[in-house]
Amino acid sequence: MANQTLDDTDLQILQCLIDNSLRSHKEIGQLVHLSGQAVGARVRRLHDLGVIDGYTLRWNPDKIGQTVHAFVTVFMKSNTAHTAFLSFARSRPEIIEVHRVSGEGCYWMRVRLSGGGALNALLDEVLAYGNYKLSLSIEMVK
Rank of each mutant, 00 (worst) to 15 (best):
V39N: 01
G40Y: 12
G40F: 11
G40N: 03
A41N: 07
R42M: 01
V43M: 06
R44P: 09
R45D: 15
L46C: 01
H47D: 08
L49W: 01
G50L: 02
G50D: 08
V51I: 14
I52Y: 09
I52A: 02
I52K: 00
I52D: 00
I52N: 01
D53P: 13
D53Y: 15
D53S: 13
G54D: 08
G54Q: 09
G54R: 02
G54F: 08
Y55W: 09
Y55S: 07
T56P: 15
T56K: 11
L57G: 08
L57A: 04
R58T: 15
W59T: 10
N60V: 10
P61M: 11
P61C: 03
P61F: 03
P61D: 07
D62F: 14
D62Q: 11
D62I: 06
K63R: 15
I64W: 12
I64V: 14
I64N: 10
I64Y: 12
G65F: 10
Q66K: 12
T67N: 10
T67S: 14
T67I: 14
T67Y: 06
T67G: 10
V68K: 02
V68R: 00
V68T: 05
H69K: 05
A70N: 03
F71Y: 13
F71D: 08
F71R: 06
F71L: 12
F71N: 07
V72Y: 03
V72F: 06
V72N: 04
T73P: 01
F75M: 09
F75A: 10
F75Y: 06
M76N: 12
M76S: 10
M76P: 09
K77G: 14
K77W: 12
S78T: 14
S78R: 10
S78M: 12
N79Y: 05
N79Q: 02
N79G: 06
T80N: 13
T80P: 09
T80V: 12
H82A: 15
H82N: 15
H82I: 04
T83A: 09
T83K: 15
A84Q: 14
A84R: 15
A84L: 09
L86S: 02
L86Y: 08
L86R: 03
L86G: 10
S87M: 04
S87V: 02
F88V: 14
A89K: 03
A89R: 03
A89E: 08
R90D: 05
R90H: 01
R90C: 04
R90G: 06
R90F: 08
R90K: 06
S91M: 03
R92C: 07
R92H: 12
P93M: 01
P93F: 04
E94N: 09
I96W: 14
I96T: 13
E97V: 02
E97G: 01
E97S: 01
V98G: 04
V98Y: 03
V98E: 11
H99V: 14
H99I: 13
H99D: 15
R100P: 04
R100N: 11
V101K: 01
S102M: 12
S102A: 15
S102E: 15
G103I: 02
E104W: 04
E104F: 06
E104D: 04
G105E: 15
G105A: 13
G105Y: 05
C106G: 13
C106Y: 07
Y107Q: 00
Y107C: 01
Y107S: 01
W108P: 00
M109G: 05
M109Q: 07
M109R: 00
M109Y: 02
M109H: 00
R110T: 15
